[in-house]
Simulated assay, not measured.
Amino acid sequence: MKSLVKQLLRSRAVRRHTAAPADRLHAPTRPYPNGWFCVAFSDEVRPGSLTTRPLMGGEVVVYRTRAGLLRAVRPQCPHLGAHLGVGGRIDGEDIVCPFHKFAFDPSGACVRTGYDLPPPKASLTRYPVREVNGSIYVWWHALGVPPQWEVPVFPMDGRQPFSHDTFDIAGHPQDVIENAFDWGHLPALHGLRDLVIEGSPVAGEPIATVTATARGTVMRRIRQSYTLTVIGLATIAARTRLPRDAGNLYVMLHATPAGPGRIHLRFGTKLELTGPPGLPEPIGRAAALPVARLLSSIAQRVASVDTGADLLMWHHLEHVEQPKLARGDGPIGRYRQWARQFYSEPPGGPTAPVRRSAGPPAVADGDGHPNGTADGHPNGTGEGMVTGDRAADRSEV
């Protein structure tokens, strides 16, 4: 499924209306939010590789040294401004500029030049980066404030990867994360029935939890249980318990601003099976891994079709600042009050300036994630929530 959104946009219903993406019709009405934002899944940045990702109108180069240390840096070399992501390479533990072959160690310091002369006192601009739950997050704050909180770690089996896709759509992350509290759209858009939902965000807390039970469109006779963990204005992590304690279905939804009015939506699915009965859990999980990986890939395709309906809504949505809410909508008003803590200026204020090459504002960067994952190898955390076994499939609308 290489172009899910394009397939949906080519459907009959959409062709009849020929609606334009939201970012073509009006300028963004809200600035970029502050917080941790996913720029890649763990398997997309392997040891000895680097990649360039858009973030808040700028760019970030994310790389992993041969030993597995993860780093996120400003793309421009401090020497003469070459782009490290265009021809740059990893040499052992150093990242090497493609222009004059200046090398920078994991601390960001220049350690050698390309012509065997002493290096200048120069350093790369590093950004706070965390590898949590199989996802790579970079901290962004409009005022350059260092990280104020951490991404929670989920107790998952790091041996099993996630299947995942990435979509480039119009939208703002606040509207995507609002889905966790827009309970009215669950029966209307997704066909869920007999909903029982609890939970709303707590003022001042960057993490929120929602629990729910419902009957779905596929398993109508089975009542499913869900737990949603909302992480800032960036991530919805969902967990569904399988019937008869057969395991858990995990879904990760990341909404990362790429530029004004545009987001990269990363969507991953993983089915964890407990394994054959009678076996100790670690052994049972290991025995079930091949089947679990296959079923995860199938589940990703099925879930992507369901999520595709949301993608179309977000892609064409115009944010209503003062909505006319109805009974059954869920705690949308409370969510929007909660969301204000992630802005350095009022949500209705001007859009943050576009940084086409500078990337996020420079902030203090530390190596010490409290769970020891900041510098870890992708399999070193034991928490591989979204470590897909294939590269993300980027579909642009």
Rank of each mutant, 00 (worst) to 15 (best):
A188S: 07
I207V: 14
S357C: 06
L9P: 04
N248G: 05
G204W: 00
G204H: 03
A309G: 11
A292N: 06
E321H: 12
D105W: 09
P146C: 01
M252L: 13
G158N: 04
T235I: 10
A214T: 12
T52C: 08
P282N: 08
V302W: 13
K2M: 15
D367E: 10
F162S: 15
I298Y: 14
G48I: 02
G81K: 13
R285W: 12
L4T: 06
L233N: 03
T213Y: 01
Y137W: 12
P47K: 04
L9W: 14
V45R: 01
T125Y: 03
I263W: 02
D105Y: 13
L311D: 06
R239S: 14
G268Y: 00
P75I: 02
A208I: 02
E198R: 08
G330P: 04
A326N: 15
L189F: 04
V5G: 01
V354A: 11
P118R: 05
R15Y: 09
V62L: 05
I95T: 08
A364G: 08
L9A: 10
Y226T: 07
A180W: 01
A170V: 08
H141G: 04
A362F: 08
G330Y: 00
T211I: 09
R130L: 11
A142L: 02
T113S: 06
R15H: 14
F167K: 11
A208Y: 03
Y343S: 09
Q341Y: 08
A40I: 04
R15W: 09
I332K: 01
R89T: 06
V176K: 00
A326H: 15
G108Q: 09
R221I: 13
E44G: 04
A109C: 08
E131N: 11
R244Y: 05
R24C: 14
P346D: 01
R223Q: 13
C38P: 00
E281M: 13
R334T: 12
S225G: 15
I90F: 10
A19R: 11
A258T: 13
Q341M: 12
T274F: 10
R16C: 11
V111K: 10
R130V: 09
T387C: 14
W139K: 06
G372R: 07
D393C: 14
P260S: 09
L294Q: 05
Y137L: 15
A67Y: 00
R394G: 06
D43Q: 13
R334W: 10
F267R: 02
L249E: 09
A142K: 00
R266L: 07
H164K: 09
A246S: 10
F181D: 00
T307I: 12
L289R: 14
R241D: 11
L80W: 09
P155S: 02
L242H: 06
T235H: 10
D165A: 08
K6S: 14
